[in-house]
């Protein structure tokens, strides 16, 4: 029983990492209908920026965090201006590839700036590094911070989409961009805003996660794949779906590792995705958009 609870907990804490990445992907997709393949690199880059501010320049955490999030937002806006806005009429593969191009640039720049500093840069945790007891189980406090962070981000943005004007405009744009333009919504601004917001979430995620994951130029892609998978599993446009998807993947990985063998960890998530998509093509919490004829 203790084994199971340990595995479930570790699945949930790892899943929270994926969920945080997935949330940013979903926010972008919700408004624009595209997947930003540079999301992982935006996450990585903002993490390094936070490192430079906090560890490199010695800025206090409450100053470094907002600055890193602002840097993330700026990077997101830049991604929109370079690789999305001019390509709105292009086909989806060109769009995907343009963000892949941005990902390469960010990775290369990060390697040039930070690649020679260490193989993996350590980032000091905001919480105590000592494990604490949670009932019968030991946890690292930072893992709980990540889980909390994922839930907070999810709630904030769920409220944002429901309650604020900007959020409603984003949803209207996602629903039907033409109609949104007709009622006077400046859809281009909405797109920029959502790219920026998605990247800002990535930056916040990077700061929360860096103490656990360490920082290295090639970290983005692995997280992007898991985050993308979590987002699709949750239905691509649902924020609670993204969190649920992330946690599901984390738990599946942990259980496969604990009960079958650790060699099944990496593949288990993908097998589940293949099955889920065949059985339920719109993900767990996705809304079916299939037109009946």
């Amino acid at each position: 029983m203790l084994l199971l609870s340990y595995l479930l907990l570790s699945g949930v804490t790892t899943g929270a990492l994926y969920a945080l990445v997935a949330l940013g992907i979903v926010v972008v997709n919700k408004a624009t209908g595209v997947i930003n393949f540079a999301h992982g690199e935006l996450f990585m880059f903002s993490g390094f920026v936070a490192w430079s501010l906090h560890v490199g320049a010695g800025l206090a955490y409450p100053i470094a965090l907002p600055l890193a999030v602002a840097a993330g937002f700026a990077l997101g806006v830049a991604t929109d201006r370079i690789a999305f806005r001019p390509l709105m009429k292009a086909d989806v593969i060109s769009l995907v590839l343009a963000t892949v191009g941005i990902a390469f640039v960010l990775r290369g720049v990060a390697r040039v700036i930070w690649g020679g500093k260490a193989d993996y840069l350590a980032f000091p945790p905001i919480t105590s590094p000592e494990p604490v007891m949670l009932g019968e189980i030991m946890v690292i406090p930072q893992q709980l911070a990540v889980l909390g962070g994922a839930i907070v981000v999810m709630l904030i943005f769920a409220a944002f989409f429901r309650l604020t004007r900007a959020g409603k405009m984003m949803q209207a744009t996602a629903d039907n961009a033409k109609a949104a333009t007709l009622v006077g919504i400046r859809t281009e601004r909405i797109y920029t805003l959502s790219f920026g917001t998605g990247a800002a979430i990535a930056a916040a995620a990077a700061v929360l996660m860096a103490p656990l994951t360490l920082l290295y130029p090639d970290m983005g892609f692995a997280f992007f794949i898991k985050g993308f998978a979590a987002a699709v599993l949750g239905g691509l446009t649902s924020l609670p779906g993204a969190v649920l998807g992330g946690l599901t993947i984390g738990v599946i990985e942990a259980l496969a590792g604990g009960y079958i063998h650790s060699s099944f960890i990496e593949v288990s998530a993908f097998v589940v995705i293949m099955i889920v998509l065949i059985v339920r093509p719109t993900g767990l919490l996705g809304v079916s958009r299939v037109r009946r004829v």
Binding site: I82, A83, P86, L87, A90, S94, L97, A98, V100, G101, I102, A103, F104, V105, L106, R107, G108, V109, R111, V112
Partner: peptide
Amino acid sequence: EIAFGAILVVFIL
């Protein structure tokens, strides 16, 4: 990497 990514983006644009 930087050049490859940048050329790709410029080309698509």
